[in-house]
Structure formats: structure tokens, C-alpha cells
């Protein structure tokens, strides 16, 4: 759809992204309940995200294939356990 699929690149933590930088979620290192919770909010594998606010708490925009997006606020300790693949800038 309208969102360009990011190119493969090395994995980093969500907290290492710069503001506005897009990335694709690879996975998370969280316990079952916690992982299920953030996945159900849309932060699941291959979801395209960007960072709207860095710091603690950070704000992540999840870009959906329907053209909509939602805004998730995350504590930094949680965000640091989510691995993402940043989009390669052209």
C-alpha cells in the first residue's frame, strides 16, 4: 500500500531510533502477558512504526496498512526491549 516497505538493516532497539525515523518491528524480549498486550495494541512483528517522541516515556506511531495510525505511549524500559529494523534512508 502507500507505505514503502523498509529495506533490511541491522536490528536496533526502539529507543535507539531518532524522532521521525521509520522502522519495522522484528520482535520483543518481553514476558507472555506483556508481549501479548503490546502486540494486541498493534506493535507486532512487521508492524511499521515511527517515533513521535524520544525519551521516557516515548511515543510510537504505528502506521497501519489502512492508512490510519495510532499513537502508543511507552515507558522507556518497555520500549528498549522491542527490536526494530530501521528503514534504510535513500
Amino acid at each position: 500500500m502507500a507505505i514503502a516497505t523498509p529495506q533490511p538493516s541491522p536490528l536496533v532497539s526502539l529507543t535507539q531510533l531518532r524522532r521521525g525515523e521509520r522502522a519495522q518491528i522484528d520482535g520483543c524480549n518481553l514476558d507472555g502477558t506483556c508481549a501479548a498486550m503490546i502486540e494486541s495494541m498493534g506493535l507486532d512483528r512487521d508492524a511499521v512504526v515511527s517515533i513521535a517522541r524520544v525519551g521516557d516515556p516515548c511515543v510510537v506511531l504505528v502506521h497501519h496498512t489502512c492508512g490510519g495510525s495510532c499513537r502508543i505511549g511507552l515507558r522507556k524500559d518497555l520500549a528498549s526491549k522491542i527490536a526494530v529494523r530501521p528503514a534504510v534512508r535513500s
Binding site: 517522541r53 489502512c66 492508512g67 499513537r71
Partner: peptide, 25 residues
Amino acid sequence: CVKAGNSQADAEQLTDRLDDVFLHP
């Protein structure tokens, strides 16, 4: 079923700015 549109950049920018203030330590 869906034709995706443009994300509403202006509204997002305003929300970003408000979040910057309200979530700043």
C-alpha cells in the same frame, strides 16, 4: 475494501507538539 489516504500530517504535528510538553519530565 479500503483505499488508503494520506496521513493527516498537520494534526499529527500539533499532537506531537502537545505531547512534547505534556510528557516532558
